[in-house]
């Protein structure tokens, strides 16, 4: 186990570092100058000496690798720098945006799990029935509708015509108000990904239910409920969970679009705004946070799978190597 954690941890750190370097480099390759974005047209009217002074103040005149080393150095000291646009501490900005994103992700994930587990089990157990076909059709429809279109349609119906749900923002306190703001973004985010989860669950369930050991359990006179809860579902949960771990990235990526449409003050929208404004320190911090969440998340899911499934646990504990 110890060795597993050490290897996985070093892999994780390497992934983070590599991902960071790539982000940093590609950001600098973006067309446009942060100084221009900060000062607008004004900047171009400044004297050359002033322009150079501003660039040097931002540290943008140095070669890219030394810029990166400096950034990494201060990040390791817990300093993410200041925003180019507002001059505010980056950590303050990020901290403000993290809360709403976590809320949105939690709500969406909860919806995904509840709906996909119940519908997935239903359609896996009743394969090729009318209800299975209906679920399959429904999940394909939601998988193929573009998110932004779906979001706009919901807004049109519930905010414009019916006027029962607010179309943007996060609300100003009060649980009910806040829930009202949360419903639409969370639903859109969940529904656009839910089809994959249902398919995975349905297919693995259908595979497992035909295995001999399920038959053996029936021959031993165990009740259907016991077989479902003690044997079928645990066996299906491992591939399902590893998919949840992988697709977390997709959901997180999807939140960028949804946060922008619903003006949800979260990380996704912050990243997009900062990218438009060439606000390098903010983007880098947001990207680092997203990257770490994904990498540590999948690490965590691996541990959970190992905890559930003895076979995974064993392959982690004893790495079999054949060599000559």
């Amino acid at each position: 186990m110890g060795r597993f954690i050490v290897t996985r941890l070093s892999e994780t750190i390497a992934t983070l570092l590599l991902g960071n370097i790539l982000c940093f480099t590609f950001l600098r390759l973006l067309p446009g100058d942060p100084a221009v974005a900060m000062y607008g047209e004004q900047f171009l009217r400044l004297s050359e000496a002033d322009q150079q002074r501003i660039t040097e103040n931002l540290g943008l005149h140095e070669p890219i690798y030394s810029q990166y080393m400096k950034w990494l150095g201060s990040v390791l000291h817990g300093d993410f720098g200041h925003s180019y646009r507002t001059g505010e501490q980056v950590s303050t900005i990020i901290a403000r945006a993290v809360g709403p994103t976590i809320l949105l992700m939690l709500a969406a994930t909860l919806l995904i799990l509840v709906i996909s587990i119940s519908l997935g089990i239903l359609s896996g157990l009743k394969r090729h029935s009318a209800i299975d076909h209906a679920i399959t059709l429904g999940s394909f429809v939601f998988m193929s509708i573009p998110t932004f279109w779906f979001a706009i349609m919901l807004m049109l119906v519930f905010s414009v015509h019916l006027g029962i749900l607010p179309s943007s923002g996060i609300g100003k306190g009060g649980l009910l108000d806040w829930l009202k703001h949360l419903v639409m973004p969370a639903t859109v985010l969940a529904l656009s990904h839910i089809g994959y989860y249902i398919r995975i669950l349905r297919n693995h369930l259908a595979l497992t239910i035909n295995k001999d050991f399920i038959w053996a359990m029936r021959v031993r006179g165990l009740s259907t409920a016991a077989i479902l809860w003690r044997h079928l579902l645990p066996n299906v949960s491992v591939p399902f969970l590893s998919y949840v771990g992988m697709s977390f990235t997709l959901t997180l990526g999807g939140s960028v679009v949804i946060e922008s449409i619903f003006s949800w003050p979260g990380l996704g929208r912050l990243t997009l705004d900062s990218a438009i404004g060439h606000d390098y320190p903010v983007i880098m911090a947001a990207l680092l946070l997203t990257l770490s969440t994904v990498v540590f998340g999948s690490f965590l899911i691996d541990l959970v799978c190992a905890w559930i499934d003895p076979r995974v646990r064993k392959s982690i504990l004893h790495k079999e190597v054949t060599s000559r």
């Binding site: 001999d212 050991f213 645990p234 499934d309």
Partner: peptide
């Protein structure tokens, strides 16, 4: 469960691997 016992050919598939 109690009156009939059953043994399969497949020794691996007839156990829940978990």
């Amino acid at each position: 469960g109690t009156q009939i016992g059953f043994v399969f050919q497949d020794t691996f598939g007839s156990f829940d691997p978990m």
